[in-house]
Design a protein around this nucleic acid. Sequence first.
DNA 1: TCTAAACATTAGCATATGCGAATATATAGC
DNA 2: GCTATATATTCGCATATGCTAATGTTTAGA
Lengths: 113, 113
Amino acid sequence: MQESLRQFKADIFQALAHPTRIAILEFLRDGELSAGALIEKLGMEQANVSQHLAVLRTKQLVLNRKVGNQVFYSVRDPIIIEVLNLMRTYFHAHLKEALEMLGEMEKPEEAVR
Amino acid sequence: MQESLRQFKADIFQALAHPTRIAILEFLRDGELSAGALIEKLGMEQANVSQHLAVLRTKQLVLNRKVGNQVFYSVRDPIIIEVLNLMRTYFHAHLKEALEMLGEMEKPEEAVR
DNA sequence: TCTAAACATTAGCATATGCGAATATATAGC
DNA sequence: GCTATATATTCGCATATGCTAATGTTTAGA
């Protein structure tokens, strides 16, 4: 039981564990957007974005409503936005290590500028 | 740049995206524990736990210090605990959907009890 | 220095994930 | 009904992840 609770949490984190899906949620932070608008903002393949939206839908992180030809997405629960905000705080607190983790120290003399 | 920032966040979420690693962090919530203590609490294979600890170490979510024969782990930044707490709130808010997601509705007449 | 204990790492395999290309579905307008 | 547009789904493949079993490494103590 405790185990399946953690599986649930892990599933949510898994849904958040991709830069494109994080970008989608951040774009939706200020209100709903159509799938097309997201595709344009992201500048990615339509199918690819649609698959990421499917992940967020399956894990119920976003809501969608259909208006005529298009589908508008929104963040279902502001808690998710709070999680992303916390992660931004975390990022700022550990910027240096973050850069190392991202492998941007390959050119040491350039890295920190 | 914006992209690699999101990659960093995604990497953190990825590290959180496993029930065993969530369990480890929750066990470490109240203070440090040795690897052995974690293995015992989790009741899992030694190598398996050690690999999950390696993931948390690599992503810098935990600190470790060696004392004689043992290695003690602790959560590096309480923000991570806050993230887990937020996720618990999220879980409670969406308990019903969570159960469906976990596939525990297979026996509908039993599910909600 | 030999052994046991505590951890870590590697190897090999099975499953999951992410991507682009192609295909399917639904709706609006004619 | 036909066509175009918006979006979703499927397929095939490449890479990543997780697990167990086996092997390494470090330290304490006899």
